[in-house]
Design a protein around this nucleic acid. Structure first.
Length: 421
DNA sequence: AACTACTCCAACCGCCTTAAA
DNA sequence: ATTTAAGGCGGTTGGAGTAGT
């Protein structure tokens, strides 16, 4: 039970994906989308399991991926989110536009962990290593009394911090010149021990999850999520909107929030116009809710990002906003064969959108994505490079043919999907 | 040049959850 | 209520690339 049937199938290719396979997958998704991953390999002519196709798309081929090295801000954000969420990579990734859970997980395991240890911080608990070692000794001694004292420490902590203004966000944003790890080091020596990530994980995740369906928890959420109140501070900030249950990723500059909200609403309006036939799907997504309620903004050190970007990683793409054939998943294989010409008039004629250059500003960006994808993994951020750079790089590319091949596809995909970046 | 050790990261594995039959 | 298929996620692995000897 629970195991993919494809896992049992033989003759399925494994290992690295070839450019040809990538092309097939891109081709298929460009044309039909990925309503049902299990049917994608067959329809796309791939000897892979659907799960593998999904992973390849999400982690590598998706057009909205930001490639290149992580910025310092991103690393700091990951550390701070990890302190709250723990190894919930997908949740962390949802707050880092253009980054995948896999990417973040790899960064954590290969780099950040090491850096934290060098700073004397235990990457698992986000406490000083010495403190963790002591705790281990103490816990071994007091193991016998564990049951009696179960839960009390957490309660004590909560009460203590409630009294010490951990609750409602009142503090002004702090300058973010110091890195998260630097601030960690400073705060670690404070008299009050920092909350463990388990504590915040329980409080945060539970409250956040229920907050999407219940109106009873906003105060709790605000209490636990005011990162700026945490003893290691924050350069991101989290708070609750007084009128909604949604998370607000505060900008250090309030104007950014307004600007982004405005931008966001504009974008949504534009998208609705451009892609009228998917507006229903979008409206049922969190993003649609955002367009109405102006729920969220997020910034990291001043570079503002709207919540639609934040949710792109998970909610947007996984929300069936682009699930052309989602309904086909439960149908027969024959029905799962999508033929655009036979679809309901209400359905999306993606091929039309895909070949329409309604967002001319994307073209260079798309080239850059392609360039990043099939050339070496450069450390540069394509978003900061100009078209000239791209053209120069393009001329220097040894694998020009491959790059061109993918240029074709990536030029089409983001155009069809709208202004994602 | 050859070998070894190490790092990075794409991809796989297995488990859990959810929805549909 | 049970079974099954599929999606999703976190942990782990294996191979390519790089640095060091």
């Amino acid at each position: 039970m629970g195991r993919h049937s494809c896992c049992y199938k033989q003759k399925l290719r494994k290992g690295l994906w070839s450019p040809e396979e990538d092309e097939k997958l891109i081709n298929h998704i460009t044309k039909y989308g990925y309503g049902c991953w299990s049917s994608v390999p067959k329809l796309a002519g791939l000897q892979r399991c659907g799960k593998s196709c999904r992973l390849r798309w999400i982690n590598y081929l998706r057009p909205d991926l930001k490639r290149g090295t992580f910025s310092l801000e991103e690393e700091n954000l990951i550390i701070e989110l990890h302190a709250v969420l723990g190894n919930k990579w997908s949740q962390i990734a949802a707050r880092l536009p253009g980054r995948t859970d896999n990417e973040i997980k790899n960064l954590w395991n290969s780099s950040i962990k090491k850096k934290l240890r060098q700073k004397g911080i235990d990457p698992n608990t986000h406490k000083p290593l010495s403190e963790v070692e002591n705790e281990e000794k103490v816990s071994a001694i007091s193991k016998n009394n564990e049951k009696a004292s179960e839960g009390s420490s957490e309660l004590n902590f909560f009460e203590a911090h409630e009294n010490s203004n951990y609750g409602i966000e009142t503090e002004k944003p702090k300058p973010s010149s110091a890195t998260t790890m630097d601030r960690y080091s400073n705060h670690m020596s404070a008299a009050v021990a920092p909350p463990t990530h388990e504590f915040f994980l329980n409080r945060f995740v539970n409250t956040h999850e229920t907050s999407t369906t219940s109106c009873n928890k906003p105060l709790d959420l605000a209490s636990y999520l005011s990162f700026q109140q945490l003893n290691y501070g924050s350069n991101i900030g989290l708070s609750m909107s007084p009128n909604t249950n949604h998370l607000l990723f505060n900008s250090n500059n309030p104007k950014n929030s307004e600007m982004v909200s405005h931008q966001f609403n504009s974008n949504m309006t534009t998208n609705d116009n451009i892609l009228p036939s998917i507006s229903n799907s979008i409206l049922t997504s969190p993003i649609a809710a955002a367009s109405n309620n102006s729920i969220g903004t997020f910034t990291s050190n001043g570079s503002s990002t709207s919540i639609d970007q934040l949710q792109r990683n998970s909610s947007f793409f996984d929300n069936n906003a682009f699930s052309w054939g989602a309904a086909d998943c439960g149908k027969s294989e024959k029905e799962a064969n999508i033929h655009p010409s036979e679809t309901d008039p209400e359905d999306i004629k993606w091929s039309e959108y895909l070949h329409t250059q309604f967002l001319p500003g994307n073209s260079i960006h798309n080239h850059q994505i392609t360039q990043e994808l099939y050339s070496e993994k450069s450390g540069t951020q394509f978003a900061t490079e100009g078209s000239l750079t791209w053209l120069q790089n393009q001329q220097q590319q040894p694998s020009l043919q491959t790059a061109d091949l993918y240029n074709k596809h990536f030029q089409r995909i983001p155009d069809a999907f709208g202004q994602f970046s």
